[in-house]
Amino acid sequence: MMLTKQEMIDRVLHLLHKTSIYDHGYERMVTQPFEEDYIGDLNPVVRVGERNYEVAMYERGVQMLSKRTKDADEVIFWILEDTVHTMAHLKLLQKYKVDNVTTHLKYTKDKVREMTDMINESFLQIGGKYEEWHKAGKRKELENPNSG
Rank of each mutant, 00 (worst) to 15 (best):
F34L: 06
S122D: 07
E50L: 10
L3T: 01
L65A: 02
P44N: 06
Y107R: 04
L16A: 07
H85C: 14
M8W: 04
R47D: 06
M87C: 08
R11A: 04
E36T: 14
V62E: 12
M87V: 08
Y130A: 03
V75D: 04
I9K: 03
E141A: 03
Y22E: 01
D71H: 08
K91L: 11
I39M: 12
T4E: 05
T108E: 00
D73R: 08
I9P: 02
Y130D: 05
I79Y: 01
G40M: 06
Q125T: 09
D82M: 07
R28A: 14
M64C: 05
T83C: 13
D23M: 10
T83P: 15
E74M: 06
T83V: 14
V101E: 12
K70D: 08
Q32V: 15
N52C: 07
K109V: 13
M87G: 05
I9A: 06
I126Y: 11
H17L: 14
L80V: 12
E27F: 12
T108Q: 01
E35D: 12
D82K: 02
L92D: 03
D41K: 05
K95L: 15
T108D: 01
V101G: 04
V101M: 08
V101L: 11
T83E: 09
H85S: 13
T86M: 14
Y130V: 05
K70A: 12
L80S: 11
E7H: 01
E36H: 15
S20K: 10
R60N: 12
H24E: 15
K97L: 10
Q6H: 07
D41A: 09
I39A: 05
K97I: 05
D37G: 15
I119N: 03
E59F: 03
K70L: 04
V48N: 00
K18T: 13
A136Y: 00
A72Q: 04
K91F: 08
M57R: 01
R28P: 13
G128Y: 04
N146W: 01
G127A: 13
V30T: 07
G40D: 11
N100V: 03
K111I: 15
E50N: 03
V46S: 03
Y38C: 09
L142C: 00
W133M: 01
E59I: 00
V55F: 06
Q63V: 05
F123K: 02
